[in-house]
Each structure stands twice: as structure tokens, then as C-alpha cells.
């Protein structure tokens, strides 16, 4: 009897510790750190695959994108600021793609926190988003990056040896395409 009580109490204690650690483990990624492991599906769309320099099917990790800098926007189709900023973020894509000096050095992706593929497509269609967007329907990625509010921007520098680090993070406050591009060029050392 006493033994059973002891086992139950121990299990309950261990589970509460686990609960606490699971819930408090993930904080927002910090500048200088590496990204947590984020697996994304290789896009079925050939243009998007080419844009990211990927081939085949299955999944990929963000540092595998063939570029020097990746700008990640964590967004939601349900987020008014993400909606408002969408045209400006599209403009950022166009500024990069129209400049031969940086065209292949900076890539842009979006991850829809809590958005199903259907919802991501709605956002893509509504705002004519020209860069790849990914669904994070069950908040799996959102949890690994500390359940940040949206829109949340991360700038990741990919080094020649394949290593990478976050060089900038930003919650909202999107300043417009040109100032943001300047910021990205500065923090990533591309300028």
C-alpha cells in the first residue's frame, strides 16, 4: 500500500516537472543563436523550389536554402498587422529580386502560425504573396520558437561552412521595404 502511494507520488512529481520544463523550455530565438530545428516541406511548386534552390520532395531545414541570408516572417492570416504589412513585405521581395547584387543572396519565406494549408493559401492569394509560405497548422514550429506574437521577423545568416546564426529578430514594427532591406544588409554583413 505504502509502496503504491510512493510510486504514484513519484510519478506525479516527475510529470509535473516534465510539464513545467516542456512549457517553459522554448523561448524566442535570440540574436547570435542558431535556429531551433524547423522542418518544412519542399514546395511542390517548381518556381518556389527553384527560388529556394531545393530539389526533390520530402522536407528541408532552413539552413539548406541555397543563399546567404534567409528572412523568415512568422505570420497568421488572422493577424491584422500581418495583413497590413503584407504589401510592404511583398515589396521587400521585389526589391531583392530586382537587384542582381543581392538577388541570390537573400531569400524570403513565411510560416503561418496555426494556419492550415487552406488558410495559408487564402493569405497568399489575397495579398498575392510572391515568396513561399508554409503552414504550421498545429503550432509545432510556433512552439519551438517561443510562441512569439505575429508578425515576427527573423534574419538568419548562413555561413560558407554550412553553419548559421540568427542576426536579427523583430516583433512587428515593420518599417517598410527599403529600411528593412537596409537593416538586413547591415546585420548580415552583405553591405
Amino acid at each position: 500500500m505504502k509502496k503504491a502511494l510512493f510510486i504514484l507520488t513519484t510519478v506525479a512529481f516527475l510529470l509535473s516537472t516534465l510539464t513545467f520544463s516542456v512549457l517553459s523550455a522554448n523561448k524566442a530565438p535570440q540574436k547570435g543563436e542558431a535556429l531551433p530545428t524547423i522542418n518544412l516541406p519542399i514546395p511542390k511548386n517548381a518556381d518556389e523550389r527553384n527560388y529556394l534552390g531545393l530539389s526533390g520532395s520530402g522536407s528541408f531545414k532552413i539552413p539548406q536554402i541555397k543563399t546567404k541570408v534567409v528572412i523568415i516572417e512568422i505570420f497568421s492570416m488572422y493577424c491584422p498587422y500581418c495583413q497590413k504589412d503584407a504589401p510592404g513585405v511583398n515589396e521587400l521581395y521585389r526589391l531583392i529580386e530586382s537587384n542582381p547584387d543581392i538577388k541570390n543572396k537573400i531569400k524570403l519565406i513565411g510560416i503561418g502560425a496555426g494556419n492550415s494549408s487552406y488558410e495559408v493559401e487564402i493569405f497568399k492569394k489575397e495579398y498575392r504573396v510572391p515568396f513561399p509560405l508554409f503552414s504550421d497548422k498545429d503550432f509545432v514550429i510556433h512552439k519551438t520558437i517561443g510562441e512569439v506574437r505575429t508578425p515576427y521577423f527573423m534574419v538568419v545568416k548562413i555561413n560558407d561552412d554550412g553553419s548559421h546564426q540568427i542576426v536579427h529578430t523583430q516583433l512587428g514594427e515593420y518599417p517598410g521595404a527599403q529600411p528593412f532591406l537596409e537593416l538586413v544588409l547591415n546585420v548580415s554583413g552583405l553591405k
Binding site: T19, V22, Y78, R149, Y152
Partner: peptide
């Protein structure tokens, strides 16, 4: 544990 784990939402910064 399970209730907390399922409590996920993306809150807009607005």
C-alpha cells in the same frame, strides 16, 4: 499537462 499542451494560439501584435 495535456490541457496546457493543447493551449496554443498565435496572438497578433496588434
Amino acid at each position: 499537462f495535456f490541457i496546457s499542451a493543447s493551449m496554443a494560439f498565435a496572438l497578433s501584435n496588434v
